[in-house]
Amino acid sequence: MQIVSIKRLRRRELRSKLVRSGVLFFTLLTLLPLVYILLYIVKQGIGAINWSFFVQLPKPVGESGGGIANALAGSFIIVGVATLLAVPIGIASALYLSEHSNGQLAGAIRFCVEVLVGIPSIVVGIVAYDWLVKPMGYFSALSGSVALAIMMLPIMIRSAEETLKRFPTSLREASLALGVPYYKTIIKVLLPCSLSGVLSGIILSVARIVGETAPLLFTAFGNPYLTTNILRPMQSLPLLIYNYAISPYDSWHQLAWGAALVLLIWILLLNILTRIIIRRWSVRY
C-alpha cells in the first residue's frame, strides 16, 4: 500500500511550486525600485554629461552649458578629509573593541556606536555647526567633513570589529611566541591579516556618506565657485543637486540630473572596489 497517494503528492508539489514562485516574485519586487532609479537617473542625466560638465563652473542663470567642477572637487575634498579624520578613530576603536570584547567599557562603546547609527544626519550636521561653524564664525568644508566623519564612524567600526574579531588566537600566539611584543603583533600581524575587511569597511562607509546632503546644509554650505580652502564654504555634489533641483531653471535641473548620475556611478564604483578588495586581498586562515 502506498503511504502517500499520487493525488496528495501532486498537491504537495503544486504547493511547493507556488511558494517558490511567491518568494521569487517578492525578491524581484525589491529589485524593482533600484532598477527603476538606476534607469531613470541614467536616462535623465546622461544628456548633461560631456567634457565641459566635468571641468566648467556652473553658468549664471540664462546662459546655457556650464558644469559641476566645483561640486566634484568639493565632494572629493570634503569626503577625503572626512575619511582622514574618521579612519584613525574608527580603526583604533574597532581594535579596542575586538581586543577587549568582553570588557565593560567595550560594552558601553559598542552601545554608543549602535546609537550613533540611528542619529538623524541633520542632527549630526547641527552638532558640527555648533562645534565648528559657530566658534569660527563662518561655514567651512572642514565642518562638513567633521559631520560626515561622525556618520562614517559607526559603519567603519562595526565592520572592522567583525573582521578583527575573526583573527585566530593561534596566529596571535605564533607571533607572541616569537618574542614579538603585543603592539607589534597588532600592527604587523593582526592588521595586515585583516586588511581586506578593514579596507572594505572604510570604503563602504565612504560610499554611505558620499551622497549625504543634510549634514552639509549648514556646514559646508555650498559655493558657486571652485575652492580648495577647507576653511571656507565649499560646494559638493549632494548640495548642488539639492539646490539646483529646487530651483526654477531647466538648465540647473539638467545639471542636477547629471550630478546625480555622477554620484550614483561614484557609489557604484566604491561598491565594486569593495568586492574586488575582498576577493583579491582576503587572507584565509
Binding site: E173, A174, A177, L178, P192, C193, V283
Partner: peptide, 12 residues
C-alpha cells in the same frame, strides 16, 4: 621557541 598543535604559518 615554540611549535603549536596546529600549524600556524602567517597567512600574509
Amino acid at each position: 621557541g615554540m611549535v603549536f598543535q596546529r600549524p600556524n604559518p602567517f597567512p600574509h
